[in-house]
Amino acid sequence: MGIVYEDQRVYCNDIVTVEEAEGLLDWLQRHPKAEVDLTACQHLHAANLQVLMAVNPAIAAWPEDAEFSLWLKSALGEPAD
């Protein structure tokens, strides 16, 4: 299962495919305070990545996959760039 939506939290698991992007954008717009849990995420299709980058939601947990986590942190986490 790619994306699981809960009350105020969305879990991105395994591989999140291109088809999920629209739903994710829609849900994040309707839940502006929601957090994203990426713990079990292996890969996000670029469409989902840009949704997260545009919405910039709070990240509850970064991916366990270290390499992937670094990508996401540099894209989402640090406004230092």
């Binding site: 717009q29 469409a47 919405v55 990508w71 894209a75």
Partner: peptide
């Protein structure tokens, strides 16, 4: 590796997530 937005992100209502 690093990724960043090419153009500033538009307001969410106007965002087309299927345009890279």
């Amino acid at each position: 590796g690093h990724t960043q937005a090419r153009e500033p992100w538009p307001p969410l209502l106007e965002l087309d997530c299927y345009r890279c």
